[in-house]
Amino acid sequence: MNSRMIGRRSFLASTAALGALALGGGTTGCAPSSRARSTAATAGGLPLTAVNRTGRHAAEPVYMYVLGVDPATGAQGHVTADGVFVPCAASDNGPDGFTDYAIPFRDSGDAAVALPKMSGRVYFSIGDRLRLKVVTDGNGRPALQYPAGWVATDPNHRILHDWIEFTHNDAGMFCNTTAVDMFSIPLAIRLAGTRTQTTGTLVDGGRDRIFAAVSAHPDFARLVVGDRLRVIAPGHGIEAGLFPADYYDSYIDAVWDRYRGTPLTVRTDAGTYTGRVTGEHLSFSGGTRAPASVARPSTRDVLFCDGALAAPNDGVTGPVAAILGAAFNRSTLLSHASQPVTDPARYYREGVTNHYARAMHEAAADGAAYGFAFDDVAGHASYIQDGAPTSVTVTLTPF
């Protein structure tokens, strides 16, 4: 993976700050700190404006939450409406057991805040406030439970919500929309700075197109929650018993059979590697340092880009695993013995493929989406960055 990216892989794992935002439903520790407002995190606030253009939900209250980690202290917390980062504390929980970190939208239809230098997420909810709770982790530190809309027992399951991910630091602003876990509210980012960039905008009727495309496939239809409240990613569908755990197995078997006798070439920034299957492993040679062999993945490994396809930040095995993970999700391994395939017209053409990710890309105005964690391979993720940002706008686009 390109080191500049803050996609799902690096967003959750590359630093302690980003790693604090574990996949939903988990708790993440806040480094010990005072409750004093952080001057270090407040310096260099970037104007962030959120605009409600949903139309159908124009009369319902909309709330924004800026959650993340102060890089100066490692403390996890939230940003107040006046642009100040405040570490989380158990005392933040109210009588109902949940915090109130919401920044309400104004009557004008928008919300604004000066974004401190930090890494985190900007959540949005429509119609109700999110149920966020500060708990204590195994080390006795405050920890914030994030929404997990794909879990039926999560207190936010019936609340319409979604989020973007970002890192704002001395190097600039790095941000993306994401459907790695789920899709619900169509969000578009406009980043101004050395130039103006946008991502996340859907084609007209894009939200309906996504739900229709997922619903049309028998194996994926059960991923739609409620009356088009959200659609969850197929990996989480396996966990919830809504998606077949062996969905990719026949494709994986075919890939393993092919590359027992045919070499697979994988090109990375660190060199070009040639792989062949021996037993249950795909072993590579070439370059100055050969990557570790890759074990036969499971369907879950493919959809989560984890397990056998986990991408360590080692510059060798990591990029190879990422490229293989993308190729499995895009189903290009049987048709192309040289990876990565960069032409999106070649993606999702097999019967067994990630139709959830395909739906996200087909509905995107620029074709970019984060439909799975390795979707940044070959530059197809809904990610933008700027080294000298002046403002960022997130629009909740029409339903």
Score class of each variant (00 low, 15 high):
Asn2Ser: 13
Arg4Met: 12
Ser14Phe: 15
Ser14Trp: 15
Ser14Lys: 15
Thr15Leu: 11
Gly19Ser: 12
Ala20Tyr: 15
Gly29His: 11
Pro32Gly: 01
Ser34Leu: 12
Ala36His: 13
Ala41Arg: 02
Ala41Ile: 03
Gly45Leu: 05
Leu46Trp: 10
Val51Ser: 06
Arg53Gly: 09
Pro61Ala: 05
Val62Tyr: 07
Tyr63Pro: 04
Val66Met: 08
Val69Asn: 11
Val69Cys: 14
Asn93His: 09
Gly97Phe: 10
Ile103Phe: 05
Pro104His: 05
Phe105His: 01
Ser108Arg: 13
Gly109Lys: 07
Ala111Asn: 05
Ala112His: 10
Val113Phe: 08
Ser119Glu: 13
Ser125Trp: 08
Leu130Ala: 01
Arg131Met: 12
Val134Ile: 08
Val134Met: 08
Val134Glu: 03
Asp137Val: 08
Asp137Asn: 13
Gly138Asp: 12
Asn139Thr: 13
Leu144Gln: 01
Tyr146Glu: 14
Asp154Arg: 01
Leu160Met: 10
Leu160Pro: 01
Glu165Lys: 05
Asp170Asn: 11
Asn176Met: 14
Thr177Met: 06
Asp181Gly: 04
Ser184Arg: 01
Ala188Leu: 07
Arg195Tyr: 11
Phe211Leu: 00
Asp219Asn: 07
Gly226His: 01
Val231Lys: 01
Glu239Met: 11
Ala245Cys: 06
Asp249Pro: 09
Tyr251Cys: 10
Asp253Asn: 10
Ala254Lys: 06
Arg258Gln: 09
Tyr259Asp: 02
Arg260Asn: 04
Gly261Trp: 13
Thr262Ile: 12
Leu264Trp: 10
Thr265Asp: 04
Thr265Tyr: 09
Thr274Asn: 10
Arg276His: 15
His281Thr: 14
Leu282Ile: 01
Ser285Leu: 14
Arg296Trp: 11
Ser298Tyr: 06
Phe304Cys: 02
Asp314Ala: 08
Gly315Tyr: 12
Gly315Leu: 10
Val316Gly: 04
Gly318Val: 03
Gly318Arg: 05
Gly318Cys: 05
Gly318Lys: 03
Ala321Asp: 10
Ile323Ser: 02
Leu324Arg: 00
Gly325Thr: 03
Ser331Pro: 09
Leu333Phe: 09
Pro340Ser: 03
Ala345Asp: 09
Ala345Glu: 08
Glu350Cys: 12
Gly351Ile: 06
Gly351His: 11
Thr353Ser: 12
Tyr356Leu: 01
Arg358Pro: 07
Met360His: 06
Met360Pro: 03
Ala364Thr: 00
Asp366Gln: 08
Val377Asp: 01
Thr390Ile: 06
Thr390Ser: 14
Ser391Ile: 03
Thr393Gly: 05
Thr395Asp: 06
